[in-house]
Amino acid sequence: MTYAIEIRDLKKRYESGFEALKGVDLTVEKGDFFALLGPNGAGKSTTIGILCSLVNKTSGQVSIFGKDIDQDFAKAKRHLGVVPQEFNFNVFETVFNVVVTQAGFYGISRAVAEGRAEKYLKQLDLWSKKDVQSRMLSGGMKRRLMIARALIHEPDVLILDEPTAGVDIELRRSMWEFIKKLNEQGTTIILTTHYLEEAEQLCRNIAIISAGEIVENTSVKALLKTLNQETFILDVDTPIPTDWTVTNYGVVVNQDGTSLEVEVTKGQSINVIFQALDAISANVVSMRNKSNRLEELFVKLIKG
């Protein structure tokens, strides 16, 4: 089977002696929406850097759509589009030139490049800014410009390294709608993000990297199934006693009695809590997770 990305025993030791990757094995299937998560310094950016030739690996094998990056680097690179974490375009070039110039580096003729640039800049709401120097764009626009640039050679795999960092909610949503559409059209998406709810909502598969090693690599659904305990916050319309308890459930009521935290372990039902509240004539008006479910697992896995 040919994977979109196949990484075998990937190691990276920097000149300082720091071992960023300690033998990473990772596969991403074609068409997947994949999340690579990990705390700062875990090895995410090093892995992505090696994939897109910005970091030299110490050892190991990396293939993109079956093309080894050492033996067939030109073909491997054609399959890959990268949206890096930091802005890395020539800030003195116009928006249009940033995108069209990148196409030239892939051997795409000017005429074809201009057509594609128009298409992607329009899709990303940047067409009206095409003649503006890229340094004049807002942060969100700059990020969209990097997406347009990464798509200009129509890659099969798009890597997005923290694409929504510092982007407002509305723009983040529209960006994800765009990326979801790309994925539906067949583009494999690999995402790193610190917003774990994004990964939970968008991604099918997930890998968690910590201290240069993959500590989990599975589907988001399978990962969430391993969650033993969830904490819910319930708001009630009638204040309840602060020492109110329910047998076998961890319950903490806040000081004014209008909100409570309930720990529900695997096999238990939240209905028991509803019934207990009903018995004291308190109605639940809203309910939410205390933290993102994936976040709880993430913290647990990282802590080992």
Partner: peptide, 13 residues
């Protein structure tokens, strides 16, 4: 300004 990365990620020899 890291714009050299535009070239490095491309297949340009």
């Amino acid at each position: 300004q890291h714009s050299v990365q535009e070239l490095l990620v491309s297949p340009t020899p």
